[in-house]
Amino acid sequence: MNIFRLAGDMTHLASVLVLLLKIHTIKSCAGVSLKTQELYALVFACRYLDIFTNFVSLYNTVMKLIFLGSSFSIVWYMRYHKVVRRSYDKDQDTFRHYFLVLPCLVLALLINEKFTFKEVMWTFSLYLEAVAILPQLVLLQRTRNIDNLTGQYVFLLGAYRGLYILNWIYRYFTEPHFVHWITWISGLVQTLLYADFFYYYYQSWKNNQKLHLPA
């Protein structure tokens, strides 16, 4: 494992911890999109179908369990916790799941490396992860006042994507036959979706102002 991959995983982990911290200690999920969180839970459930059959390393297995556990517990908190669920911006978070899920499923059935159930589900999870942030970005755009933790959460997720691209570049040059077009293209699309947010995040950080997205 190279330094970019490790740093990418750690920022991904940090993003989840920041979100759990916000929900667990402040008992608020204001500005957080339940749609995006449900899509992430679906992404991990479909991607880690091999968790007990394909052992890569203890690190991989533990991280998979953490991502599965945290994504489902965030969804649980936002849906059912008696305090947290009251802070959910339900009326603003109106993105429809199936607009994203159905095209990704069709695409995974058409474009995959191997037409088996596990492989199609894995490909579906890559396509869906690429666009799962959209409901969150739409919600940020709508509510416009973004608290620090929500801003940091999205920033860390974007950083994780960027580091994964560096990891692929590194692996391409250091490992023979490391070519994964589906992973790369969907990963690149996902990272580009953060570009706009990153621009405003950087501006607010540079000017030492509160993050504020234009209408």
Partner: peptide, 10 residues
């Protein structure tokens, strides 16, 4: 080296 159908990333 892992074969192509074994995914080693998260």
């Amino acid at each position: 080296q892992e074969s192509d159908d074994e995914h080693d990333e998260l």
